[in-house]
Design a protein around this nucleic acid. Structure first.
Lengths: 253, 253
DNA sequence: ACAAAAAAATGACTTAGGTCAAGCGGCTCT
DNA sequence: AGAGCCGCTTGACCTAAGTCATTTTTTTGT
């Protein structure tokens, strides 16, 4: 079932970890420089490079750490009993991975790199220690977990009541928003994931995603060239959702 | 849009709170009696009685507490921009409510009682204090939040790739499992929520839910009488999902 | 740089579930 | 207790999205 590939190893490396990889924990509030130093000390200890197609973790592996994405992007998925996969989300630089592992002793999802990536390892027991010492860091960590819950509620909303067209529009707008928050263009998207993955994530079939992308292009809303999507009329894309603006189905910063 | 009803007030009452209402925090592990006392001291402070149809909290209200359901059941929902509601979940005695409020300063969902209920209030800042003092309680709280995340991933899975028939079977089996975990019959379910709510939760239309319940009954799998469902052949209900047993789409204990 | 393989696009047709409409029955309220 | 209302059920029909099949494009490995 699982493709053979090199086993999961913690390849410690000397990679400088900018503050971006702690966006979720530090931002958006008043972590004092001192506390920030603590966080950076924590995260600076271990770094990993995960190549495109390799796994950061797999469902069933013992849980020990959370991971902050320094560069690159991941998809997470869950395996069904009959071996098919269900894509649960796409994570970009600054996002935190691994929270699905906290409740048990093992990770529940699997995380696979969509491109060559650099990630920071946060040993969970160290993070817990730190949150016991600093109420501010504690609160920030709790916010982070709660945000993941909200994110999921948003996706449930989408899967529960949006049409295929609305889902795809919401997906593109969400990506646009997140790219923008990272300082990239909000209208020039580079889709790192396959149409298959997009379809799976949105609860659709690849053919439907293909058709809809073509339709959006024919309507002049977007221009596609392979993995690159140019959003020509972001307002018309918003209009597909039937309301002006706001947050779509996934509020990750 | 919102029906007028008595405003949200913290009607402190003298209700004895059995340990059941802290299932999520204490169970299943080794909280020492001492720590358990701390938790109970925390939770014993405030109790609420919420009548059927009344709200425990509403999206937009300032966040201050988590709530443990002592008796009764709730549904949570989110309002869409155009005022329709999306049912996010059903919560039974022992379940924890309000985690959607942690990430912001306000609750995001709304929680409405499906019957007359008794709930315990856990002021969040007190809970955070407590988790700073006790690593065991801290870990347990983190597990609880992570379990909520997993629960949502499970629902996403359902909404993303199950047929209507599978969703309804999963819903019934999930309820059965949770009733059983609370010491009730696994085969005699009393549905506290409307067909509308079930449909909305499952991403279906009420007519479809009705038809499927009738079909399950015609097939002899269940026997329905209004809100009461008797599961006649739980194995055949499991077979609808295409695999033997296990956990369905929602692992709340 | 080329060939093979995988991914994506497109068309024809099917179907699960939605929509609309009508009748039934069990609660709620006075 | 009885009237009225709302929620539930059921039927007939429709449509959005899925399925299957074919072609085109992109990616990958030598």
């Amino acid at each position: 079932m699982r493709p053979t590939e090199k086993p999961f190893t913690l390849t410690a490396q000397k990679v400088s970890c900018g503050r971006c990889c702690l966006r979720e924990l530090c931002a958006p509030i008043d972590v004092t420089p001192q506390q920030e130093d603590l966080l950076h000390a924590l995260v600076k200890q271990q770094h990993l490079s995960i190549r495109r197609g390799d796994h950061l973790y797999r469902g069933g592996m013992p849980f020990h750490s959370l991971f902050a994405i320094h560069t690159g992007s991941f998809k997470t998925y869950m395996l069904t009993d009959d071996g098919r996969e269900r894509v649960e989300g796409f994570y970009l630089s600054g996002d935190m991975l691994g929270m699905d592992g906290i409740s048990g002793d093992t990770y529940t999802l699997s995380a696979v790199a969509l491109e060559d990536t650099g990630i920071c390892v946060l040993p969970f027991h160290r993070l817990e220690e730190l949150t016991r010492e600093s109420p501010v860091v504690q609160r920030q960590f709790h916010r982070m977990m709660s945000r993941e819950i909200l994110r999921d509620k948003g996706i449930m909303m989408m899967l529960g009541q949006m049409t295929a067209e609305e889902r795809l529009a919401a997906f593109l707008l969400n990506l646009s928003q997140r790219y923008e928050a990272r300082g990239f263009s909000a209208t020039e998207l580079s889709l790192r994931m396959s149409r298959q993955d997009i379809a799976n994530y949105l609860g659709l079939k690849p053919e439907t995603v293909s058709r809809l992308l073509s339709r959006f292009q024919d309507d002049g809303i977007i221009a596609i060239s392979g993995k690159n999507v140019h959003i020509v009329h972001i307002d018309r894309l918003r209009a597909v959702l039937g309301f002006g603006d706001g947050i779509y189905f996934d509020q990750l910063p």
